[in-house]
Write a protein that binds this DNA or RNA. Sequence first.
DNA 1: GTGAAAGCGCTAACAG
DNA 2: CTGTTAGCGCTTTCAC
Lengths: 335, 335
Amino acid sequence: MATLKQPTGIDVARLAGVSKSAVSRAFTGGSVSDEARQRIFDAARELRYRPSQAARSLKTNRSRLVGLAVTHLDNQFYPEVIERISDTLAIEGYRLVLFITRGEAELEPVIYELLGFSLDGVILASGAFAARVAHECVEAAMPVIMFNNIDKSSQIPGVSADNTLGGETVARHFIERGHKRIAVITGVADSSTSKDRTEGFCRAVSGAGLPMPTLVNGNYTVEGAAEAMNALLARPDAPTAVFCVNDHMAFSAIGACQQAGVQPGRDIAIAGFDNVGIAGWPSFALTSYAQPVTAMIERCVSRLMAEIGGQADDTGTECIPGKLIIRQSSDFHVP
Amino acid sequence: MATLKQPTGIDVARLAGVSKSAVSRAFTGGSVSDEARQRIFDAARELRYRPSQAARSLKTNRSRLVGLAVTHLDNQFYPEVIERISDTLAIEGYRLVLFITRGEAELEPVIYELLGFSLDGVILASGAFAARVAHECVEAAMPVIMFNNIDKSSQIPGVSADNTLGGETVARHFIERGHKRIAVITGVADSSTSKDRTEGFCRAVSGAGLPMPTLVNGNYTVEGAAEAMNALLARPDAPTAVFCVNDHMAFSAIGACQQAGVQPGRDIAIAGFDNVGIAGWPSFALTSYAQPVTAMIERCVSRLMAEIGGQADDTGTECIPGKLIIRQSSDFHVP
DNA sequence: GTGAAAGCGCTAACAG
DNA sequence: CTGTTAGCGCTTTCAC
């Protein structure tokens, strides 16, 4: 039963024959004699005592909880990121509270909750509308940082891959392999990731004197990407290379190609972005621009910790270069 | 800055010209006159006031936080489950605190944290050693329920698919298609899921008068499953059908087959378990026993809520039947 | 329907 | 090094 009375610091103090402050000190690293400490810990173990976080939070104004807002998790990039952020935060003694968002409709309640759960800080990895949530957090003096999707136009702290560079890098790869008819399957229109990747890509393509790539919106969904790919294949001037602005869509595009009898890596070059685990599976062998996830998370967490520690973060937006991983899906020259 | 003073109930009370008790009532659904309520909410909005969860928790002994322990998330089943649990809990006003575990080594700290974070309850979906954590929770009077991996030998609340039935169902499917040389790639040895699925499968196979399936341990990992599959293919009496006890390993097995020039759905039948999203992708078209995720989560959450509400849960372990989804990877008859 | 008052369990001065 | 004391912000009797 949940109603069984938990022991308090007083119970422990009594059993150990000390004051409750001594107990508190023992558990917070204050100065206690070794002997007292020993008695306290023994008593605590006996009573199965653990300091109540609720009371502690009330006093210290710290919950050791960080909120993480993400969109739905079928894009494998997010589970990977969640796992790594969780690990990194755990080292600092923090835990993640999950807020899975599904779109604009849920905006208000999410903000309300994010701010209501007495979190120490918030990481926003949730795509398009995150910027608005971020502003609310700033207003409410809640430490916040945007991850992956950022808002360059504001001073809101953010960490992302260098998406523009990533787009460029993929473009250059296509160009080197002799492609001339090139397309890109874009993501949700107002996400910074899609915009930047597409922009970098297009700039490099036209900079090389090639015609502007055909852009089709895949909306960051499996269905959208499949449709986009089919539309591309149906064109009289079908592209020989297509850049999907994330791997999630690239997998779907590959599937669409296969169904149409077009073989990626031979008949058409496909590249993605994120380099999620699946990209390396032999069934896909997807060329992908790898986000520097480790570095991104390291920066994200340490900046958030600094904010929580009271240091204002005026670093703004930070873009870290990644690395192109070339695999079979694009590793050939056009004739 | 994190240090900006947040408004308290007193501030709101003062601005609204009422007592702080009135403010509290307004926010907890107590009886307040409409007029007062209006003034209070107006004042709260103006001050950007939100009741502090920490203080509330201290008083009510409820945090509206539920812990979720899971192993690493590369098995796509878990992200799917997390997302759904998060949604279901959100309806009840609860949020998920994530504890990503990585094995026995981390057992103690995880327990300590799980119990230390003043959670209202805990969901254990974390595989093999979850049972020990569960017992600790029970001892500590922390409402707990095991999900997916359960412990039938104890009275610890648990919800899972009917894994035995699932294994049987897959076996029957193979048998109907005329397979005689059958193998299974198993998971971590002491996980109830792997044991039950394998057991149900083997029982049905030998019940049909066929020789016992060859068992190879894939350890629930991509690498393990690939090795297992390769070992299977190398045998003189290589199987014509293999059951992978989860989809995660099945994908890897499919990859291994393809690399060996053996085509799933034609040369060999492959089936998985979980029916994760990817299973339906054309690149895999994996036959899989679908876990009844919706029902499982519904039961899991409502039982946990009951426990949190103070009702002892003596339902024990609960297994819900799923459904076989037949796809190309196994949809053929042996000659 | 409303306010006053008493804590929830803890930490952090403060004095010894 | 140790105990006493005063709250953290809220909910909740209890009178009115």
